[in-house]
């Protein structure tokens, strides 16, 4: 139960009962005679932690989406800071520009040299605008591919952090070939002769997420989401209106949680988050992520590159459910 004491700056509506107890704890602690309330404090902490545990055990898919979007949730640059050594950022797609919504560069994680490719949403308003809130333009996908090919050339494994509401839906993005850029990534990633691991750390929004997630192994953080469309987008079309009720229905039907995606065979692993979500303890989250990356890359190093590509193809070829009379 470490690290969960700190209430995040932003409390999600469903966490309000916990925030209320946090406020009580704080006011007790701030009293001059706080030492007289040790028992009460300890009791409150237990109540609070049990409540938090219960809330997160019974979390709905729509609440999961909100946790996945929490502004304090660790992002690609946080994982770079927390688990990478000697990060050497590499910019630009050599064609058009440098998209801040996708960060790329060499790094070391544990015993492995890797190429980092990750969506970045931005940690403050200025950066968020710069990153288009994690919605990459075509140059972002082309930058990712350029660096991934560089990694392949030198037999360096690729570690991709997925965190996007979707690829940017804008005029310039269309003019510069958003669809073509994503399609190219899907095709080329499927035949890159180097290990690829991908982790959905927050939002896995449709093709914009898949554009860096055609990997040998894909993991999701426990409270991230990954789906063909956002719940709001789906609700607006199929339920004719996006509201709390229809968003919940859409999120549930879309089977977008880590558990759903594991059950449906679309991902290979779930990485546990600290009690109350990654936003409450970035260090513990990063440690779990690092362990999965190191173990998985070590495991994948058994395969020669051609075998990896063959297995990667078979994995995606087997996805889908049909009936055949």
């Amino acid at each position: 139960m470490t690290g969960t004491e700190a209430t995040p700056k932003i409390t999600l509506p469903f966490e309000e009962p916990v925030a209320e107890i946090d406020r009580q704890i704080l006011s007790l602690k701030e009293r001059d005679d706080a030492e007289n309330y040790e028992n009460e404090l300890s009791e409150l902490r237990d109540t609070r932690n049990n409540l938090l545990k219960k809330l997160y055990e019974n979390i709905t898919p729509w609440q999961t989406v909100k946790v996945a979007r929490h502004p304090d949730r660790p992002q690609t640059t946080d994982y770079i800071r927390l688990i990478c050594r000697d990060f050497r950022e590499l910019h630009g797609d050599r064609r058009f520009g440098d998209d801040a919504a996708i960060r790329t560069g060499f790094a070391r994680i544990g015993p492995h040299k890797v190429m980092i490719v990750g969506h970045q949403k931005g940690k403050n308003t200025e950066e968020r605008i710069d990153c288009h809130f994690g919605c990459a333009h075509p140059e972002g996908y082309r930058k990712a591919l350029h660096k991934m090919k560089l990694a392949e050339k030198f037999n360096i494994p690729i570690v991709a952090f997925v965190d996007t509401p979707g690829a940017y839906p804008g005029l310039k993005a269309e003019e510069r070939g958003q669809a073509q850029a994503i399609a190219e990534n899907l095709k080329e990633m499927s035949r890159l002769e180097t290990p690829i691991v991908s982790i959905v750390i927050g939002e896995g929004g449709s093709g914009g997420a898949l554009g860096i997630a055609v990997a040998d192994r894909v993991a999701m953080l426990q409270f991230s989401w990954y789906s063909v469309i956002s719940p709001e987008g789906c609700a607006a079309i199929l339920w004719k209106e996006a509201n709390e009720e229809t968003n919940l229905a859409a999120a549930t039907n879309l089977a977008l949680t880590s558990r759903d995606n594991l059950r449906n065979g679309l991902i290979d692993a779930i990485i546990a988050e600290p009690l109350g979500g990654a936003q409450r303890d970035e260090q513990l989250t990063a440690t779990n992520v690092e362990r999965w990356i190191v173990d998985t890359l070590t495991d994948l190093s058994r395969f020669n590159p051609k075998t990896l590509v063959q297995r990667r193809y078979e994995k995606f070829a087997n996805m889908g459910v049909t009936s055949e009379a």
């Binding site: 899907l186 990954y226 879309l254 996805m319 459910v321």
Partner: peptide, 9 residues
């Protein structure tokens, strides 16, 4: 949902 998405890959 995700099964459709993976048809792209």
């Amino acid at each position: 949902s995700g099964l459709s998405l993976m048809q792209m890959a």
